[in-house]
Design a protein around this nucleic acid. Sequence first.
DNA 1: AATGAATGAGTGTTCATTCAT
DNA 2: GATGAATGAACACTCATTCAT
Lengths: 200, 200, 200, 200
Amino acid sequence: MVQERGTRGEARRARLLQAAARIFGQCGYHATKVSTIVADAGVTQPTFYFYFESKEAVFAELVTAFRERFRELIREGQLDRDTPPAELAAKTRQHITAIFQFLADDPNMTRIGLLQAPDADSIKQELVDLFAAKLANNQAAGYMRPEIDVAVIAEAIGGMVERLTVRYLLTGERDPQTLADIVADFTQNGLAHTPGDAAA
Amino acid sequence: MVQERGTRGEARRARLLQAAARIFGQCGYHATKVSTIVADAGVTQPTFYFYFESKEAVFAELVTAFRERFRELIREGQLDRDTPPAELAAKTRQHITAIFQFLADDPNMTRIGLLQAPDADSIKQELVDLFAAKLANNQAAGYMRPEIDVAVIAEAIGGMVERLTVRYLLTGERDPQTLADIVADFTQNGLAHTPGDAAA
Amino acid sequence: MVQERGTRGEARRARLLQAAARIFGQCGYHATKVSTIVADAGVTQPTFYFYFESKEAVFAELVTAFRERFRELIREGQLDRDTPPAELAAKTRQHITAIFQFLADDPNMTRIGLLQAPDADSIKQELVDLFAAKLANNQAAGYMRPEIDVAVIAEAIGGMVERLTVRYLLTGERDPQTLADIVADFTQNGLAHTPGDAAA
Amino acid sequence: MVQERGTRGEARRARLLQAAARIFGQCGYHATKVSTIVADAGVTQPTFYFYFESKEAVFAELVTAFRERFRELIREGQLDRDTPPAELAAKTRQHITAIFQFLADDPNMTRIGLLQAPDADSIKQELVDLFAAKLANNQAAGYMRPEIDVAVIAEAIGGMVERLTVRYLLTGERDPQTLADIVADFTQNGLAHTPGDAAA
DNA sequence: AATGAATGAGTGTTCATTCAT
DNA sequence: GATGAATGAACACTCATTCAT
């Protein structure tokens, strides 16, 4: 079998990228020095510049990678449109779980894409837009009070997700499933006693 | 007439602090250069170092100032303990409005204290702790479902507030009152139809 | 007497500029390192950047300085227009002497402005243009054969001047006066026997 | 069939050399990167170093190649010694034309050998020396005024040639023949009216 | 109380050059 | 003969910080 071309190079590039993710994720963009990345990856500085244009470029590549995976995940959530009403809540809960799961999987990448990226807001916006679309759907279908401002609520839910991710997911104090359940329940019912509760 | 000591000095110091707030708030800590601050304030670099220990020190002073005003505001919210149940919701709404108002008043300081400060999380934590305490109270008083995890919910509400602040308050797209109403309603009732709605 | 402001700073700036001229002149732009300039001037690198934008900027400043002095000199040559025919040759000889004198005065600056500058050609062009104008005058006045292409000849004389400068002036082998006489004679009479000679 | 050794290698080497000439000629020595040369030649950097010692070495090889061809040309000019006086002027004109022709043929090589080479002066010196020898001959033969300093004049003519080459030949604004005629006429007769003219 | 001028220490980046295959 | 990948050695430049006055 022919030796695959560039295998070794790709490995080195990957090592550098991984090292960069680790250090950016832990120290932030400015506190991260190229010299630290290459030391961590066990190569010299010119090697870094052989694979990447600049410090900014690696960072951008990591952000883009995060963004693409995140976007992919969001798209999956958009496919639920034809879900029968009965399963919709469960579907949504599943999707939120998946999002939390993704954010928990690679904490460094999550910090880079969600907190450090200059365009972090625009990345989160995509998720918020998904929420907004879903909420609008639900509202139109009569599952949601009509006076609710879906744009603002979508943003609010996005804020919740971000904060819970940082506070509980990245610290390992709560797992994706638990958080998703809490978010789903809170979002749907609020904190006051629900009708069913009241009857009890 | 006695020359009041430090009057002019204090003015200079204040000008520097204001310039620092403006530039930190708009550019972030790293992108802000001492030389830019002093240029903006119309003084020289040594003057800056006469009033402040270091770049980090001014930043810290701004963060502390924000923190103290914010903490003050939070304390006011803690005084509602003896509020009669009937007025509690209104009181809470008022308090959230006050918080949004404060965050809207000085966008640069808000960005510094809420987003840029290394201890931004700990600052927000104080608000979250207040929320947690209030929620615990309400829960104990039977106004809230007992199965709710107040710590997580408090955190979630904190995330909502932060995001809405950044997204709607700092951009001027929504005013504090509106946002407070939305947050209060959402928090209490969720998105689904409330019992009262159901009756309708 | 009031201490003149910036005196010391100007002195340092001048020292740096002089050091830069020396090293650029001897080593050329690329071979010249900022570290060498500052070492030569006895200051540190940031001091260099306090006074100059960049390595390129100092070089440009030197080139501009040369260009301006050179242009000044050229202008003086343009004032001869009303010189009576009888004195014209002497005037011209004087002017060429002055040009050679100027080029001999500061060899480093001459090398920088005449040989190293990216826009050296455009600098020389100003001299060539002067020559062209004078030649055209002479031609119109009937002192010069009408079939001569003044543009080309002006360029040729410019080449002569440059080469003689580099070869004899910068090496100290000939003095401005001598060279000017040779150029003037050669230019006017060529190498062949002149009418007068023929008569002799 | 026997595989001719090195044929392909020689082709590659030639391609590299040609690419180097093109880029050196257009960008100068320092601005030329080995990586650019190899990219232009369609090979990799180690290949470059297989054929050439160093960047400096290729440059030197180009300079040497230019120098040798130039020297050859000059030698041809030295063969005119026994030319009968009557044909001498024409012969000289021919030779100057040939030199201009050569310089016009490969502009990049001309720039490299005449302008960029560190030993450009010594290269031009060979031409100047030829001029000097011819002039001395002429002077000895009585065709030239005896008071003329042939060394200086030879240098001056060299400067003319260089400048006209750069200004008119490399830009394509004048052809070798025209320039040679101008140079020959100017050199011999100067700008003033010649005896013949005077008679007219 | 304030300034013009200076600096130490570091940082990203480049480029000619060369292994290992 | 040729290549993908790597490196040593510099170099220009920046910035927070501080003398000397």
